[in-house]
Structures are given as C-alpha cells and as structure tokens.
Nucleic acid binder design. Structure first.
Length: 508
DNA sequence: CCGATCACGC
DNA sequence: GGGCAACGTGATCGGA
C-alpha cells in the first residue's frame, strides 16, 4: 500500500486528501505527487459554498446521483467507500478541465494542492499547551466572576443571568437606563459599543463589559482548551482549506486562529502556548500585508511610493489625509488614519467610519473624500471592481483565485451593497491568502531541504508560527524570513517581522 | 435544533 | 430611502 502511494509514476486522485494523508503520515508514509483532490478542486471552482460533499460533486459535475440503497449482502461502509473512490476518479478530470478553462490550473496545482500536505503535517505536529496553567487561570477568573456577579446583583437589586442579553436589557429597563438602540429583533441592545457609551454614566455597564470579557476567556479558552490536550501534551486542531470564500484557511476543534492577544487578561491565555523543553517558538508576521497588496493591485502611486520608501503607512496617511504636522498632532491622527486604512480595505462607508472614529457622518464623508483625493488609484479600484463583478459575475485575486457574486445585481440595496463590499475586499484578502499559502509551501520545503527539525505549527492569516530547537533558531529564522518575503514579487516590498520566545505571547 | 447575540482573532 | 467593515469559530440563551 505504502509502495503504491509513494510511487511517483502513478496518478492519484483523492477526496479530502488531508484526511487521507494525515492518517498515512501517522503510519510514517508520506504520499507524493497527488494529482487531484476533488474537494479542493471544487472549492477553487466556487469557494462560496459551505461544503463539497461527494453527492454534490456527482450531481453537479457528473449529473449522476449516489446510490440510494446498498445491494443485498454488501457491507454499507465498504460500498460507500468504493462508491466514493469511483466518483472521485470520474469527477477529477471534469474538474480539471473546468479549472483549465477558468485559467485556474496554477492556483490549484501550485498553491492549493501543495498546501494540503503542509496542513496535514501541521495538524499532526500540533501545539503544546500548558493545561495546568490554564486550569489555574480558569479558577482564578471564576472567583473574580463571582465577585463581579455580587456587585452586579447589588446594583440591579436582584439576581439575573448576566450571560443573557435579554435579561441584561430587562435590568436596564428596570433601572431606567436608556440604551437608545434596539437589536434586529426589537430587543434592547446591550452590544459592546452601547455599553461603552453607557459606562460614562453607569457603573453597571462597565461591570458587564468586564464580566463578558472574563467569561469569554473562561469558557472559550481557559476551560475548553485543557480538555483538548492529547497524551502528547499537545492540541491537534483542524485547519480547513475549503471553508472561507476568500481563500483564507479556517481553524476548528479548537479555533487556534482566535487566541486572545489584545487585553492583558487575554494575554495570559496566549502565554500558555509553549514549546517543548529545548525548543522555542518563532513567530513571523507580514507587516501590513493587505495594504501592500492594495497598493500593488490599485497601482496607486502615492501608497506604492510610501511602501517603497519604507514609510510608516498610517503616519503617512495621517499627514496626507488628516494634515498632521507636529509630533503631538501626528500621534492622535495616526490612530484615526489606522482605522481609515483598515476600513478602506473593507469598503467602509461614511456611517460606519463615523461610528468607529467618533466623528460626525459629514466629517467622515469628508475624510473619505480626502482619502480618495490623496490615493487616487484606490478610488478607481473601488469604482472598477463592483463593475467587474457585475460584468463577469466574479472577481479574482492576483493568482487567479475567484469568488462569484450572484446577488450583485439584486434589487435590494442592502444585498447589493454588501456584495459590492465583498467584491472590493476579495482580491485583497484573496491575494493575501495566496501569498501566505505560497510562503507556507516554500518555507516547509526549505526547512526540509536544510534537514532542520523546526516545524510549522500554526497559520493566522498573516502570521506563521514555528517550534524550533534552540540550536536551529538563527538559521530557521533567516530561512523563514527569506521565504516569506520572497513568496511573491509585488511592486512594493513584502516585509516580515520575526520574533522568538518561550511562549506565543513573548514570540510576538 | 437553530437563530440571535455576543466576543475572540486577522 | 435604506442601511451601514471583509473573513472566520464558538459559547450561551431561549424559543420551536
């Protein structure tokens, strides 16, 4: 079996090769030269779907159905396995031809297929987590939550379920606290933004904000993660390749792409991700990856030159758009510029910007106008892309990844506007995904070539995380930085910042 | 079981 | 006039 699977002269098509190869890797077999993964191929053809089951592939690409019943005397599992193999083999050439006619052979063969084995290996290696530290942290948090509950009940004059937005709204009503906002279902809104407003006047609002943060850390991380640590002391989650419509990976069971980093309390969770004895963690982050891609795609001269000159892009925006002059002025305006720069990639409108920056809608309108007057190429892009999506039905990343927009001509303004924003964002986020996947493939190959023990263990969209023996740190860091920065050649440089530490927090 | 709401990441 | 930042995962609530 191993001989067949590692034979380079045989073509091999699979359905969900990561699962198959992951199982083989555990047995010490490393399959090579996978010709096709029909699940991944179907994802590249239309990444907007939520899943790609074999019965869908049979129906959509072979115009056949899977068997409704199993013949007498045949084991069901065996039959379905044979059927899966049959459909996989028959659908593979059909998908290949569609990829070819879409000009997507390269994103498939050079990015997605090689990514599969990298992900299988990462899942197999996993991440070491200090479960005892998390359990201690959970106990500590729980005490603080109880103290918070007592204070909240005292203020409310009664007990209530703090975890229920509905009951929080009821308590606000009883205390004559006006939130002003309602949710889509007509309930009193207790969203974070509303609570921040109320916290100016009412202590209870701040306490609920604090409670929610701590309860999140307790339930989702401190209590959940230790249960997932396997006998090897590590968590082996899933990295999903066919979920996100833009080409990003997603992470489940558990989600290791949303480990806290922002708040002091949350950072305690991140500190529990550690290397084995004798190893360190290496974190490598692309600096401003999406904005650099935006500069490249739009060919905007001002933004492109800023990146070429190695300038601080947010400070640059603060000067050019907000007219910042002296240092003191710059500090505050840089903060605003940062919000605007991020908003632009998501096609933010005046209203959204105004609530985020804390200015009036008219002022926000002017900021956006000034922004486009400065970065003229970006305005053109924002105008062109929705038109392209309306004309072709899809837009694409720099490497040919596509996303379709079936509702971009919808009569409903909300539906249409949403698809326009998604279309504007996709080439940016999609190209970032392409580049990071290429980097993963190339770093993995380079580490292997150099016979290093350093292992890639996580990807968080613009960050790669590695675990390395202490004596390999310098060499591995150099390889990682080099391969990531040269993963794509754009009209602006790609810059990667590398950090080393004894936990994920300190490696940043 | 599922939609709504909330919170975490990029 | 409406509705209002892209992409995700997961915990919890509360009604069906």
């Amino acid at each position: 079996m191993g001989d067949i699977l590692t034979n380079k002269f045989l073509q091999k098509a699979a359905f969900d090769a990561k699962s198959v190869n992951g199982a083989l890797l555990k047995l010490g077999i490393r399959p090579v030269d996978l010709t096709d993964d029909v699940m991944v191929a179907a994802y590249i053809l239309d990444p907007g779907r939520t899943n790609y089951p074999i019965d869908f592939l049979a129906q959509a690409y072979l115009d056949t159905d899977i068997a409704r019943s199993i013949p007498d005397g045949i084991d069901e599992a065996a039959f379905r396995t044979a059927e899966l193999a049959d459909i996989t083999a028959r659908v593979a050439p059909v998908l290949r031809e569609k990829l070819r006619s879409n000009d997507q052979e390269r994103v498939y063969a050079e990015i997605e297929l090689p990514t599969i084995d990298v992900l299988a290996e990462m899942e197999l290696v996993g991440m070491k987590v200090d479960g005892d530290a998390l359990i201690r942290f959970a106990a500590d948090i729980k005490q603080q939550l109880e103290a918070l509950s007592d204070r909240l009940f005292a203020i409310a004059g009664r007990e209530f379920n703090i975890g229920s937005p509905k009951q929080v709204g009821e308590v606000f009503a009883e205390l004559n606290i006006e939130t002003g906002k309602k949710t889509a279902t007509g309930q009193i809104s207790t969203s974070h933004d509303v609570l921040v407003e109320l916290a100016q006047t009412y202590e209870i609002a701040q306490l609920i904000i604090d409670y929610r943060e701590m309860d999140k850390l307790r339930a989702t991380y401190a209590e959940a993660l230790p249960k997932l640590i396997r006998d090897d002391g590590r968590i082996h989650g899933c990295l999903n390749q066919t979920v996100a419509a833009t080409g990003r990976l997603s992470s489940t069971d558990p989600n290791l792409q949303n480990i806290p980093v922002r708040t002091t309390l949350g950072q305690e969770i991140r500190r529990s991700f550690i290397p084995e004895k004798g190893n360190k963690l290496i974190s490598a982050d692309y600096s401003q990856l999406e904005l650099r891609i935006l500069a490249h795609i739009t060919q905007d001269a001002v933004m492109t030159n800023a990146f070429r000159d190695g300038e601080d892009i947010h400070a640059n925006t603060a000067r050019l758009v907000f007219g910042a002059t002296d240092e003191k002025d710059l500090k505050e305006k840089r903060r605003l510029a940062k919000i605007v720069n991020f908003g632009i990639a998501y096609a933010v409108e005046a209203f959204g910007l105004s609530t985020r920056v804390g200015i009036s809608r008219a002022e926000a309108r002017k900021v956006i106008d000034d922004y486009f007057a400065t970065y003229k190429g970006i305005r053109k892009y924002m105008d062109d892309i929705p038109q392209q999506a309306k004309r072709d039905g899809f837009v694409k990343s720099l490497f040919g990844r596509r996303r379709y927009f079936p509702s971009i001509n919808d009569r409903n303004f909300t539906v249409r506007a949403r698809q326009e924003r998604e279309a504007i964002n996709m080439p940016i986020q999609g190209t970032a995904s392409d580049i990071v996947k290429i980097a993963m493939i190339n770093v993995d190959k380079a580490l292997r070539n150099e016979k290093l023990e350093t292992k890639m263990i996580m990807q968080v969209h613009d960050e790669l995380l590695f675990e390395a023996p202490v004596n390999e740190i310098e060499q591995a860091s150099a390889i990682i930085k080099r391969e990531m920065e040269t993963a794509a050649k754009l009209d602006v440089p790609l810059i990667v910042e590398v950090g080393v530490g004894d936990n994920w927090m300190d490696a940043k």
